[in-house]
Nucleic acid binder design. Structure first.
Lengths: 238, 238
DNA sequence: CGCTTAGATAATGTGCACATTATGCATCAA
DNA sequence: TTGATGCATAATGTGCACATTATCTAAGCG
């Protein structure tokens, strides 16, 4: 009672979210390579929290297909096959075709202005050779397209696909090339501005085929990482 | 030790899956109406399992947006607003447009044969006035369309949308009308057979607009249900 | 009479102990 | 040397006890 016997941490949804974001970001940014074992005890120690909290986050990640969970055998960072990657890209391509169909119907000056502003930003990053920004902005372009519809279902699905393809790119994509050609993005917006639906869909299709063609089967059998190095923030001071 | 003190149930993923399916089906079939509180203790008692098992299933359902979970306040069957329902239908419409774009490219005799077979089944159900079968088959038509692409990502997303719109229909749709007109489905297949993409998209679009137009705001404030009646199977014999 | 508030009660969140299962390793036989 | 087998160890799954939070009720006050 009055003892300092044990102190139970109060309900803290922010901590759950912080751990969730930390692991998600680590996978997206490639700090956690494919195939890495995610042991509950190790993670609990690295974050300085109890094992149950890690367990809850891990199951949530498993339900969202971001990690792979095998009963009684724990969780791993998935190593998708080339076919699964192609399926994700194809799904993105199919979805974007549908988005374009709807977009030409509701297109107005405000939407075009937002897309133009993004293209300018993207081109600036490409011209100054900022690869990190280029990767981020090339993904953001497709997010802008679907967000223009204002449909949270579609936006959520696309972000899910994009987060999955990001980790895939980090595994299979040769790092020397830029992800998306800015020219192709600009061409899509021009077709939209001209209300040329067939052209926009065709450009989008070829754009994705270009990206898919760059994929190579390059397995990255990196050594096991130390979680304390992967996650910078959870260093707790005594 | 050797006592019959307490017996821990061995790991049983099938039980988890059974409970998950039971709750999902109950929501889909309308046995659990919108707004019903899903108390952990009540569910544990109804299924005859421990509270932690229910808790795990509930969090999984919450992650998939099938139920609504508020921290420290428990889980409820969601009562979506009319706008949210429209968003789900719009997402379905946008996705199907993209599916049609890809479908006309890979269309062959086998796919058309499967679609024709389904249409015959659907028309037979409509002509004999089997409303239950009509509802089921009209949803299955759209599943057939996306499954023809053989992309599990797209199939999974569409099934998710369909399961969400099913519960919505049970809440908002007047029960006297059939969900989908078979004629409209047949017209879409005919446009596909003629490789007329623009017509197919337009037919699909109007088809969904017809369904959306039927939606009415009809709140169903039914009385609280007894879980023992809702879930038939978990009656455990002593 | 209406509003606020304090206590009682019920439901959810968390940590821990233990059961169960998988894995690594040494030993032995062919 | 290679393969199989049994044991030791570690990791995951589950139930329970307790802390925390929300909800309900009723008393008190303006």
């Amino acid at each position: 009672m009055s003892d300092v016997k044990r102190r139970q941490a109060k309900a803290d949804p922010e901590m759950d979210e912080a751990i969730y974001q930390a692991i998600t970001q680590a996978i997206l940014e490639g700090r956690l390579t494919a195939g890495t074992k995610l042991a509950e005890h190790r993670l609990a120690e690295a974050f300085g929290v109890s094992r149950e909290r890690i367990r809850k986050v891990l199951h949530r990640l498993g339900a969202e297909r971001r990690i792979e969970i095998v009963p009684n055998r724990g969780a791993r960072v998935p190593q998708p096959s080339l076919n699964e990657i192609r399926a994700v890209y194809e799904a993105h391509r199919v979805l974007e075709a549908g988005v374009l169909v709807q977009l030409v119907r509701i297109l107005d000056a405000a939407i075009l202005a937002r897309l133009d502003a993004h293209l300018a930003e993207e081109r600036a990053a490409a011209e100054r050779g900022d690869r990190a920004a280029s990767v981020r902005l090339s993904g953001a372009f497709h997010i802008h397209l679907v967000d223009a519809l204002g449909n949270s279902e579609l936006s959520h699905f696309l972000r899910d696909l994009l987060s999955r393809s990001s980790v895939m790119v980090s595994v299979y994509e040769p790092a020397s090339q830029s992800i998306c050609a800015v020219d192709e993005h600009e061409a899509i917006v021009e077709a939209l501005r001209a209300r040329d639906l067939a052209a926009a869909i065709d450009l989008s299709r070829h754009h994705f085929l270009h990206v898919e063609r760059r994929l190579r089967v390059e397995c990255a059998p990196k050594a096991a990482q130390e979680f304390a190095d992967v996650f910078a923030l959870p260093v707790r001071q005594p």
